[in-house]
Design a protein around this nucleic acid. Structure first.
Lengths: 178, 178
DNA sequence: TTTTCCATGTAACTCGTTACATGATTTC
DNA sequence: GAAATCATGTAACGAGTTACATGGAAAA
């Protein structure tokens, strides 16, 4: 929740923009970092406006639909820094939905489990490729760090999954010796 | 949503239990893997009962409050395997709240950013220690894999964070040469 | 005797998503 | 003439959390 606010305020720290522009920017550049959807962005911007953290002024440019341009206020900047500090100092609480399935792998025969996990590994490696082949968009150090962070976890996941698959294969071979 | 169901059905695959027991088990053993809360468990169990995946029969043991004992039905077992297969084959979509702050590190002076990130790293290393010093509870291969998975990501995060801190320190030193 | 344990829940709320609505305008 | 783009939203729903309620029994 505060993360959505932090993201929007951070974007507005660079320069004032209207909602459509912000959403487009997120869609094109930050999809790996956030999954915030358009209606959430619009709603959050309105909320931030109500709370005095952003200012709105409408603009009618040419024949295009009326835009609402959001600018960050001084209070908004203070709030941004507050959110930023707590965010940077706090570790993510990680929990992975796939761990729940993993706990029960032993309920499936090894070969079926291996097939499923291999599919998952392929999906993962595809995502890693996509990530690595993505163009460098030179928005400063921080954005690079964030992207790198994401990639680090994808790779760690891949390595771990591979080792799980290997160990299950060994189990399969051992069980076939009987 | 289906993960909560998978978890509960998986627990009931071992043996029939009442809600309190299930919640206690989660609380004591699976807190690293799931964050499901009590009311969610009770509600999900009721839902699974409505859908015919589990059967309920009440039991009055001694002077203790009446228990509702949940048993998995044949349909429930089929549903369990269905959920298990899709869960195992699907990679987690990872997104980390801390990446949003990270994107904007450059808005803070290096030394302040370093202080905040160091705090976060300490928090992380504490969590890793806790994880490693936790006793082995011999519930089969799968549970061990899941725990290992969690630890792998904690460590990857720690390593990455350390490298970020190091690079920021270099930046700080370089900027002080002026 | 007060607190903790057992055992179950409910009600209100929060955060977010999905699907849809609007209407003009430019591109195919 | 149809489809995509620009620009904004709303309404309904979903999943889960928090805080609270209940009430007897055992432990401190």
């Amino acid at each position: 929740m505060e993360e959505r606010a932090l993201l929007l305020l951070g974007i507005l720290m660079v320069h004032s923009q209207h909602g459509y522009q912000i959403n487009e920017f997120i869609e094109m550049n930050l999809r790996r970092v956030t999954d915030m959807k358009k209606p959430t962005a619009y709603a959050t911007l309105d909320r931030l406006a109500d709370e005095g953290y952003v200012e709105v002024h409408t603009e009618k440019a040419g024949k295009r639909p009326t835009r609402k341009i959001y600018s960050i206020t001084p209070q908004g900047q203070r709030y941004f820094f507050e959110l930023l500090r707590t965010n940077l100092a706090k570790a993510d609480k990680m929990n992975f939905g796939s761990d729940i399935g993993m706990m029960f792998v032993d309920h499936l025969p090894y070969d079926e489990a291996l097939t499923l996990l291999d599919k998952r590994r392929q999906e993962l490696s595809l995502e890693i490729e996509l990530h690595e082949s993505a163009p460098e968009h030179g928005f400063g150090l921080g954005v690079d760090f964030a992207m790198e962070h994401h990639l680090v976890h994808l790779k760690a996941d891949f390595e771990w999954l591979s080792s799980v698959i290997e160990r299950l294969r060994n189990q399969l071979e051992n069980s076939q010796l009987n």
